[in-house]
Amino acid sequence: MPDQISPDLFNHLVELAALELTAEEAEYLRDQLNKQLKSIEELAAIPIPEGTPPAAHGVPFPPDVRAPLRKDAAALAPEAGDIKTRAPQTSEGYFVVPGIPHEELD
């Protein structure tokens, strides 16, 4: 059976994932990806009774289990300045990044 993920499709995924890979890494990862997809092929063959709902999580969350929503109140975060000290580059309270790709409009 041919590989499900061709080199072209793989490169597209790498682009979507915002990654950059060495040739060696790409070969290993594409091979593993194809092996994983082969190993989950049986998913398609599992008999699923009609009406089986998709489960967002296993445990049901009826109102008595769910925490009540908190009041929607705005509050200042005193730690904001401290949090920003973790950023690689800031200026005047803003995060600094290189140019954002864009097209000039006429």
């Binding site: 790498v14 990654l19 890494e25 990806l33 994983q36 997809l37």
Partner: peptide, 9 residues
């Protein structure tokens, strides 16, 4: 990296 690629696919 592998998990991101698989998740995207």
């Amino acid at each position: 990296k592998l998990r991101i690629l698989m998740g995207m696919y």
